[in-house]
Simulated assay, not measured.
Amino acid sequence: MLKRITKTAYTNVRKLCITTTTQQQIQEEIVKQEPMSVQVLKHPDYFNVHNLFTVKDLFDARVHFGHKEGSLDERMIPYIYGSRLGHIIFDLDQTAEYLRKALNIAAHVAYRDGIILFFQRGAQHVHLVEKTAIECGEFAHTRFWRGGIFTNSTKQFGSITRLPDLCIFFNTLNNVLIQHTAIRDSAKMLIATIGIVDSNCNPNLVTYPVPGNDDSTASIELYCKLFKNAILRGKQKRKEHLEQNIY
Rank of each mutant, 00 (worst) to 15 (best):
M1K: 08
M1F: 08
T8Q: 08
A9K: 08
T11I: 11
R14A: 05
I18N: 10
T19L: 14
T20H: 07
T22Q: 13
T22K: 14
T22C: 11
Q24C: 12
I26A: 14
I26Y: 09
Q27F: 05
Q27P: 00
Q27V: 08
E28D: 11
K32R: 15
Q33M: 15
E34P: 07
E34S: 12
P35D: 08
M36I: 07
V38M: 14
V38H: 12
V38Q: 13
V40F: 06
V40P: 05
L41A: 13
K42Y: 11
K42V: 09
K42L: 14
D45Q: 01
Y46W: 01
F47M: 00
N48A: 03
N48R: 03
H50L: 00
N51L: 02
F53M: 13
K56V: 10
D57E: 08
L58F: 13
F59K: 12
F59S: 14
D60Q: 13
R62N: 15
G66S: 14
K68E: 15
G70T: 12
S71Y: 14
R75L: 08
I77Y: 13
G86D: 12
H87C: 12
I88A: 10
F90T: 09
L92C: 12
L92E: 12
Q94I: 13
A96I: 00
A96D: 02
L99K: 06
R100Y: 00
R100F: 00
R100Q: 01
A102Y: 03
A102T: 05
L103G: 01
A110H: 04
Y111P: 02
Q120F: 03
G122F: 06
G122I: 04
H125M: 09
H127G: 02
H127N: 09
L128H: 03
L128C: 04
T132W: 02
E135C: 06
C136G: 07
E138W: 01
H141Q: 05
H141M: 04
T142L: 02
W145V: 04
F150V: 01
T151W: 09
S153L: 07
T154I: 12
K155L: 11
Q156R: 09
R162Q: 08
P164D: 00
D165L: 01
C167Q: 00
F170P: 10
F170L: 13
N171T: 10
N174W: 10
N174P: 01
V176R: 14
I178R: 07
I178N: 09
Q179I: 03
H180D: 09
T181E: 06
A182K: 00
I183A: 02
I183K: 03
D185A: 06
K188F: 08
M189R: 05
M189K: 07
M189A: 03
A192D: 07
T193E: 01
G195N: 03
D198W: 12
D198N: 15
N204F: 02
L205V: 12
L205Y: 05
V206L: 03
T207L: 02
Y208H: 13
P209Y: 07
G212D: 15
D214E: 15
A218L: 15
A218V: 13
E221A: 15
L222F: 11
L222K: 14
C224P: 06
K225F: 09
K228S: 13
K228C: 11
R233P: 00
R238P: 04
K239C: 04
E240Q: 10
E240N: 10
E240L: 09
E240G: 04
H241P: 06
L242W: 06
I246L: 13
